[in-house]
Write a protein that binds this DNA or RNA. Structure first.
Lengths: 332, 332
DNA sequence: TTTTAGCACTCTTCTTAAAGAAGTGCTACT
DNA sequence: AGTAGCACTTCTTTAAGAAGAGTGCTAAAA
């Protein structure tokens, strides 16, 4: 357990480092702690032994370690209200009634990204408790049809299908009718198995190209579950941070942004706004990720801010909380 | 006009520089030109005076200037057939009949990007000569409907609409019916004005929420014309090129990739495969862009490869030509 | 027992110098 | 016209020294 002064010191070091991005020396903190630099040094040694502070080299000032930040976020950060300025900017989004959910999310994260110079990510995903509302098959030429699937939450997916032979108009509408009759109201996740085991046996008798149609629907439906859209804003913002000052750092972080498994790395399951620091972020040792899941009736997904470990935690936390709350209220 | 030997020399310098990425000295070319380094130097001076070669400093070897590359591409590049290996890889795409246009394009450019280590861009855009095939309005809750627009080229757009008051089911289907009757077959570009001037007067009498519906359709339709999708592959590939060795170079090029007006910078109007070098590329002084427009019945757009000026022009040219040709044939 | 002053020490950063390499331009010769 | 030779320029690398920042430790003061 840290003493009051040690906590105070840790806090000062971190906040100073967040501002300046350079190691903090003992002298700089004398006045604020009302003691001499020697005393500060002694305390710093202790904090270093405990793993909260580090040195970049033997005679440098101190920088916070990942667990230093961790301690700071968990224990030292007073639950700060969102600042008036920041709130004002976000309000322009949530007071606009013409925006649909995805726009509101994108735009509000854009604001965060702009004013903080960090990078934001939205991981949109259609929630799995969509129910099928309507199926439509529209022929657009001799051997091309479009399968359209609409859910009760207002999500529309479509898939173009090339048929090997031309399909009879009648067969098509019969199929569609049947599909609608049997599928409307079914949770999307159950549709594929229903297609396979309940509908296929009935319909395969009198529709020649059933296989093809089946596949097309299968693909259109899999877009709901598989395809999680990732939207970045301000990918280059984070490069303005002084921690990315070498070519390799920059290349490294950029290629992480582009990497295929970004989804699994960003996706959040918890319901609170959480802070992941460094190694802990699963993303990159040199960044912190603040993220949360949002959940409305129609959708759920993750919103995240990626910044240097030396990040304005309180500010970002309060903004993300504000956004999450308003999204969930407004699009409930 | 350049002498035979001068052309030969220019070609050798460029090809050597493309391989090595370092200034080419006179000694390196003696054997190939069967003369002494002094002679090579004399010719080099001449080529420098003509603006085709440059020095990085007073006693360095030569590197090609933008107009050097230009001359090379326009006059020295024998129209090279695509190499067997490259062709083989691309054939896997075009022999697959399950791919729709946009997938085929993306995947083939992915291949180019992978094997060349340059960055590729696809600028997809629904062609304007889509005709409206079907309009659908699906209510999903009390005061939410989805407007769906389908064209004869198989493009589907949808827009969710929040209605201020709940809409009568009957009114909705009447409206939809009318819209279909009057709009089917209309070129997409003409739909808005038709909506405004022909349909509005008729319908506004007996549908309360006509304004809202109108706006929704308007927005769904504008997605066809406005929204040009930009898809990059291998954004980080180009960073492997040695010309991007300083932080600023990297940051600079990355932020160009992210910039808003990327569309206008990449979009190509010409029908051939064209090469833009350096300043000429409109994109960045340090890159070359090879691009062409593709055009099928349903779509048109631009495909482009962005690489260093020191790019394997012949290879990329032949691959892009191959891709363009096969796309246009296959999806004609 | 806690705090402080003082000092030697370490490591970084900046500047300068010197040595080596690469390659040119020019002159004079073939 | 082509070539050999050489002085010259510039870059790159390495080394060395000086200045600056900040530490850890010791011993004295509170």
């Amino acid at each position: 357990m840290l003493s009051g002064r040690q906590e105070e010191l840790l806090k000062l070091v971190i906040e100073e480092y967040i501002k300046s991005a350079r190691p903090v020396g003992s002298k700089a903190l004398c006045k604020k702690l009302k003691c001499s630099s020697a005393t500060v040094r002694n305390e710093m040694m202790l904090l270093e032994e405990l793993g909260y502070l580090e040195k970049t080299h033997i005679s440098s000032g101190r920088i916070p370690s990942s667990s230093g930040y961790r301690y700071y976020v968990d224990n030292l950060l007073e639950p700060k209200e969102i600042s008036g300025d920041d709130m004002l900017k976000l309000q322009t989004i949530f007071s606009n009634n013409n925006l649909v959910l995805s726009e509101a999310i994108s735009k509000s994260l854009e604001i965060v990204s702009d004013i903080t110079n960090y990078t934001s990510v939205v991981l949109g995903s259609a929630s799995k408790d969509n129910n099928l509302m309507k199926v439509e098959v529209v022929p657009i030429s001799q051997n091309k049809v479009i399968a359209i699937v609409i859910t009760d939450k207002g999500i529309v997916e479509n898939k173009q299908i090339n048929l090997s032979e031309s399909v009879d108009q009648n067969e098509l509408s019969k199929t569609t009718e049947l599909l609608n009759k049997m599928l409307v109201g079914t949770p999307i996740s159950l549709v594929p198995s229903k297609l396979e085991f309940e509908i296929k046996p009935i319909i395969s008798n009198y529709v020649k190209n059933y296989e093809v149609l089946y596949n097309a629907f299968y693909e259109a439906l899999s877009d709901f579950t598989n395809e999680k859209e990732v939207r970045f804003t301000g990918k280059t913002n984070i490069l303005k941070q002084p921690e990315f000052s070498t070519v390799d750092d920059v290349k490294n972080i950029i290629s992480k942004f582009e990497s295929k498994d970004i989804v699994s790395k960003i996706e959040e399951t918890g319901n609170e706004v959480k802070v992941y620091i460094g190694e802990n972020s699963e993303f990159d040792d040199n960044v912190a990720v603040i993220k949360t899941k949002y959940k409305t009736k129609a959708n759920e997904g993750t919103i995240a801010i990626i910044g240097p470990k030396r990040m304005e935690y309180d500010r970002v936390l309060s903004m993300l909380e504000y956004i999450k709350k308003h999204i969930e209220e407004k699009y409930e």
